[in-house]
Design a protein around this nucleic acid. Structure first.
Lengths: 337, 337
DNA sequence: CTGAAAGCGCTTACAG
DNA sequence: CTGAAAGCGCTTACAG
């Protein structure tokens, strides 16, 4: 109940008193440092256990100059992506007794830079991961670097050598997905572009263009339409493509949500997938198995990317990790004879 | 770059020196406390700004006995739910310069109690929110209460008076959703139950039963099947219902994911929704607008619930908040003439 | 209206 | 192998 007295938490001094050692020795034991006699160590451990002692993260942080906290700056638009990233990062954090500080932001925020700057000044994070589109904003990287804090970029698309990063080869994935369409007999292929602020949009589009080029297929500009990564923008982009008299036999949407919007549009128009129009998406969000037919797409290993990002931050891992993607073939592509 | 020197962050002493006051006065200004001459206040503010000073959360926490941190313990199974809860809580946290510590758990973890106990001992959280199924586990509430920490339960279903909570009336929502089915002419209604460990499963089922009873409809036990809140369990539960020779004209799935599994089953069997079987779900996850027909369901105001939970924690708000739900009518229910 | 002192619970740097 | 001292950057409690 509310009125209950706060149970006084045991401190390092309590343990020291009980074990009849100095607090420094307790500190050594709690941190698994060497140079403690086995017997002393046992005595301290026992005292700690009997007092149910857990070192205060706050005090350790202030004294030691380490916060045991890493951060994640992400765009709050896509819940699945952010959640998977968190899941991976938290899994790795727990291995090192770290915690994750989630910092959703929106790129529309006019005070974005100030907000991040305040965050960095207020909480002494031991490292920070930045996902798109923030990882491609030079101003943000500048202020992080000014603090000297270590950071990792997730799926950056510009200036890759600037800092540690974890990513997958989106260009290659888009190339192969397009190739998949071509090998199934499609030559009239449209593309719905993603949010121009997200680097992935460009990489995916470039992979698409390269595949067309390699197979000597001309891209029809009427079938290339701008979307913004969300459902309705896919529907709207579809509308623009189908305004033209001649229509493509397949469309590559730069992410799954836009592919869903496209499917909704086709449904409303009485067009069937994949008989009338084949569709592929990108990301492999859970909804891919909800739509009918299920969506052929590229699986991004988002949870693994989060794990790898935390690994780089906590373990001073390699500066770059490129994770493998998988093409997931489902039912949204027709094989033309 | 990595080799860059760490920019020394300004401390309260730096500001005090520059403004020619004591650190106590700086502290007063930073915390908007009274009893500072306007002129002094301005001088301090100026100094703080010129030094780009932000108080260290860590130091404030340790000295003040407040961590400016609240926690959220949630089940990591359903990403949408957890994400929406986080979003609401973070929005409220920012108003009070608080941060949210996310603590995903799984009820399968044998060390669940120990893990939460360690968490509470390690980080001095100023409050904690607990979502299902954890909010209904007496052992967890016990250890939280033993620390004296304030907490709030999100959608608890047992022992509601035990602590502060935010919830919606799931019984009532299920009742009205069932009524909706009945008013559309359905009398042969099945039900797919949710995870027995989640209190909501029972509340929803009870609301369903009550509506049937009030309308003098006998519940056919063959059409009541056990699911576990995830997609495949809905498909499996559907299989069991349709094993029986006589089949229902409508099915209420205790959450949307199971409704999706049910739809997949019907699709595979060549049965049409809503012509052959009408369906309703519960929660209003994004996928509801992806399936075809779109799913009629109950919208849970999850983000608002997160906001309200943080409000209770930070503002010492009312002990109970019951938020309104909305029935969202889409295309998955047939009106029988 | 302002400040000097003590202390939050640890770690660092040093001494023995 | 062990410990005494100083300090992390603030707030609390008190004095004036």
């Amino acid at each position: 109940m509310a009125g209950r007295a706060q149970q006084s938490t045991a401190t390092i001094s309590d343990v020291a008193t009980l074990a009849q050692v100095s607090i420094k020795t307790v500190s050594r034991v709690m941190n698994d440092e060497p140079n403690v006699r086995a017997q002393t160590r046992d005595r301290v451990k026992e005292a700690a256990k009997s007092l149910n002692y857990n070192p205060s993260m706050l005090a350790r942080s202030l004294a030691g100059g380490k916060s045991y906290l890493i951060g994640l700056i992400y765009d709050n638009i896509n819940s699945t992506y952010a959640h998977d990233l968190q899941t991976g990062m938290i899994a790795r954090c727990r291995l090192s007794k770290y915690h994750l500080m989630c910092e959703p932001q929106t790129s529309e925020n006019p005070d974005l830079i100030q907000a991040i700057s305040n965050l960095l000044a207020t909480i002494r994070l031991d490292g920070i991961a930045i996902s798109p589109p923030f990882c491609d904003m030079p101003q943000i990287l500048d202020i992080i670097e000014a603090t000297g804090m270590s950071y990792v970029r997730i799926s950056p698309s510009k200036d890759l050598g600037r800092a540690a990063c974890v990513r997958m080869d989106e260009f290659d994935a888009a190339y192969n997905l397009t190739k998949h369409l071509i090998e199934r007999g499609h030559k009239e292929i449209g593309f719905i572009r993603g949010h121009p602020q997200h680097g992935g949009s460009h990489l995916r589009f470039e992979g698409f263009c390269k595949a067309l080029k390699d197979y000597n297929i001309d891209a029809n500009q009427n079938w290339i339409s701008q979307g913004y990564f969300y459902f309705e923008s896919g529907r709207e982009a579809a509308r623009q493509i189908f305004e033209h008299s001649k229509r493509p036999s397949a469309i590559f949407a730069a992410n799954d949500y836009m592919a869903f919007g496209l499917m909704a549009y086709l449904h409303d128009m009485g067009l069937k997938v994949p008989e009338d129009v084949s569709i592929v998406g990108f990301d492999d969000v859970p909804g891919c198995q909800l739509v009918w037919p299920h969506l052929t797409t590229i699986h991004q290993p988002v949870t693994d990317m989060g794990y790898a990002a935390a690994e780089i931050l906590l373990n001073n891992g390699p500066k770059e990790r490129v994770l493998p993607y998988r093409m997931i073939e489902r039912g949204s592509v027709l094989k033309k004879e």
